[in-house]
Write a protein that binds this DNA or RNA. Structure first.
Lengths: 227, 227
DNA sequence: CATTATTGATAGCTTTACTATTATATTTGC
DNA sequence: GCAAATATAATAGTAAAGCTATCAATAATG
């Protein structure tokens, strides 16, 4: 499995780039450098000029790959969803028990990745942090309709569809499966941000071993879908 | 009540402005103009230069009230939470039945305001849209810790605390009340955005009369807190 | 009525976001 | 092996955004 996973490549909608960053050495440096730099200084302060310096290239060269920094963040976000889907598929394949399957699925979409490093050009831990903290900025804007029309969010929709399907297996009458799944996913991002920065808006950590955010959403999901 | 409400003023933490916009004619124009302009063109495209033109003032004058556009958005967001809290307090005062009280509370925090206009300098409907679509950009950034230290989020925390308290009245053993409330609040924003722009990530509208987002969260809340 | 505070008008500076041009290095087809 | 195509680097430059400074005009206040 580990072996197989190390051979797969995450595909990202080509609307998001001018030249495929996975197709060249420089492109890969742009991606891994973007993750590093956004993780370090945040999306607002991130510029192509700073990135160019970081990866020993030039601003103009980066512009041949991406139109602007927004598309880079969206690229990373969509890559993240492709990666999440791949983890999800392997986690639930051949699991017969419906409830166990749902539990595994929610664990995947809410987990806090510590180290993964299956992809040598992608620091998944830092990527997850970037996606958690910044991804809403990538799609909550006036361009989202155009991006959506071009199929940009297909990876994200796949993840939601898959988990949604498991919910419907358990309770075919539950009326809001997708709403529940997207609430769990986006809620996880936000709660993790709150735990770190605005603890007054969230619940305190229980014991140090457990992941309170994950517990909360698993509990919420099972109670919500029960008839 | 309506009479009383028209006499109250929403207080916003003074860390957010250099000069209190509610203290002058120009200040009020900056606020109402910001709501109009952000609603129209979105936060990214919003600039103090454009705002100055809109309200017949100058860029430099606006800079005497606010350090930057981020603080304006945060000001609007915090005002929105103060306003929400005032609505919440009146909705639940003297309501004895715990479950009814919770239902009213969740209705307030998830409602889609059509017209309100109790505050002549604030278009609440447009403000709500701006807060729904853009507010995450105001606080999800590297400055949040500093802002939080200065008590900026007190209005927001109050709202969460109040609803949280009602949940604990119904079920004192529910372990994650604040997490649930902040998930409902932020989830509402996001689901409304999804319904409009990314319907594939959410559930379809049921019948045109009902508010599916509100229904979903009320259903979710009651099921989740039940023992 | 003198002083103080507020706003407007204008200028300017730095950074960001992006494009264009040319030179150099690398790859690829033949 | 060499010409042609392609990719990248180096550099320059433009427009807008973001922000500060100065000073004059006006309004408020004591």
């Amino acid at each position: 499995m580990q072996q197989f996973l190390s051979n797969i490549q995450i595909k990202v909608n080509d609307y998001l780039f001018l030249k495929d960053p996975s197709s060249s050495e420089l492109g890969k440096r742009i991606i891994s450098g973007s993750v590093e730099l956004m993780h370090e200084i945040g999306f607002e302060a991130f510029t192509f000029k700073k990135l160019a310096k970081e990866i020993n290239s030039t601003e103009a060269s980066i512009y041949r790959y991406f139109e602007n920094k927004n598309k880079v963040l969206l690229y990373l976000t969509i890559w993240f969803w492709g990666w999440t889907e791949s983890k999800l598929v392997f986690a639930i394949t051949n699991v017969e028990d419906k409830e166990l399957k749902l539990k595994k699925a929610i664990t995947i979409i809410t987990e806090d990745v510590l180290e993964d490093r299956r992809f040598k050009d992608m620091n998944e831990r830092k990527l997850q942090k970037v996606v958690y903290d910044e991804s809403a900025k990538a799609y909550i804007n006036k361009l989202v309709d155009d991006e959506n029309k071009n199929g940009v969010f297909a990876n994200y929709k796949s993840v939601i569809q898959r988990v949604s399907d498991i919910i419907l297996e358990i309770n075919p009458d539950y009326p809001y499966p997708k709403m529940l799944v997207s609430t769990i996913i986006e809620g996880t991002h936000l709660q993790r941000f709150f735990v770190d920065h605005l603890p007054g808006l969230t619940s305190p950590k229980t014991n140090s071993d457990s992941d309170v955010v994950q517990e909360f959403f698993i509990d919420l999901a099972f109670k919500t879908i029960k008839t």
